[in-house]
Design a protein around this nucleic acid. Structure first.
Lengths: 211, 211
DNA sequence: ACGACTGGGTGATTCCCGTTTAGTGTCGGT
DNA sequence: ACCGACACTAAACGGGAATCACCCAGTCGT
């Protein structure tokens, strides 16, 4: 899946105080390539070419390659956190809240597969765990936002088994499992994704939560 | 997580007809390193050093690095398939069968984390999808073995929703999600893994299957 | 006995990656 | 006029996978 890159006509040097504009250009180019070709496809040199600048130039704005892609991922996860925050503010019962959050989570994953893989499917292989901590922390905040309604459900004594934390972890894992398989094994001929998500959701909620 | 490698004392040249013995030695060394250091940690040169042979020598027995690690993974997945076949032969009701298979699957994943990641968590990034087809085919056979009892459950009209295939996919996804997160994010402070697995199992089965 | 053949094995090389070093050219302020 | 900060680069490094042109030791046919 190689993408046709725009002719790398040299980009004009930025005027004196405007180096920071380059940063945005780099992020934009990197995001495009990252979305199209994934982590290892988004080469430093490719990104630099797309911006119209030497590969060395990227190091004026970013410590290393990982910082670029993690910044992109960070922005994406922030959108997810925002989404969760919005849902948390809706005046609906906790079970619906959990359901809507899980739906939003899975939709996010399918809409941002490369980001999702980078953050949620990679161990130290792609990115050393200590670099990814910031993004993971954001992910944890998402998880906490998600845990709140689960705690409410637990407080109502409606969990069939386990603690609120355990239930939240299992619910999350279930969603993660489905979308991560859909993302990483697209060649397998899966049943309809929407139906699978619905069955996963209904099944887990019915299985873990009493009426 | 770097492992201390044995001193690479030169290994004697094999007599004329015994080149194939080298193949086994390579696989053994590669497996050790792969288990200890994962995909990108298991370098061609490291493997060659461990065997006591030049890196070039590996290419006499394997097309490329991926073929080595996929062969190792293949063997592991074959063990999983065997496991599933054994369980399929046990005279127990289909729900128990499904449960035992899911337990075996998750135990396998936690026992062989690097193999599991290579086969079930990686997309084209680590290994191009066309190389991995053999292993995926084996994985599919595991899935089919797992689907059989699910089909039986469906035939008994005991599925709350969806088809047998969909139910099997969701059950598999749930297990995969849990173990893949446990494997790839070991730094997160999870609840007890066994309890989580039990909750996932109970929850999904209760949620998808009627008595 | 001996030359040719062949299978096991290698060192040097190629290409691409991320990253570093040592700069170059230009602009604004004094 | 000139100096320093700034935007940027060319060249190189080290380390990956993979390939190339070889070499060397047995073995086989004669």
């Amino acid at each position: 899946m190689t993408v046709v890159l725009k002719k790398p006509h040299k980009s004009a040097r930025k005027p004196k105080g405007d180096g920071h504009l380059r940063r945005g250009e780099i992020l934009a180019a990197a995001e495009t390539i990252f979305i199209a070709e994934g982590y290892s496809g988004a080469t430093i040199r490719k990104i630099a070419d797309a911006v119209g600048v030497s590969s060395t130039a990227l190091y004026m704005h970013f410590r290393d390659k990982d910082q670029i892609l993690l910044e992109i991922s960070n922005d994406a996860i922030e959108r997810l956190l925002e989404l969760n925050t919005e849902i948390a503010a809706q005046p609906i019962d906790p079970v619906s809240r959990v359901r809507v959050m899980m739906e939003a989570y899975m939709k996010f994953a399918l809409d941002n597969p490369n980001t999702y893989q980078l953050v949620f499917c990679s161990s130290g292989d792609l990115v050393s765990q200590d670099k990814i901590t910031d993004v993971l922390a954001l992910g944890d905040r998402c998880f906490e936002k998600f845990s709140e309604p689960v705690h409410q459900i637990a407080a109502q004594g409606r969990l069939r088994a386990g603690s609120a934390v355990q239930a939240a972890e299992v619910l999350w894992s279930g969603c993660h499992g489905l979308v991560s398989l859909l993302i990483t094994k697209p060649s397998r001929n899966w049943s309809d994704a929407d139906q699978l998500m619905k069955i996963m959701l209904d099944g887990l909620l019915y299985g873990l939560v009493t009426d």
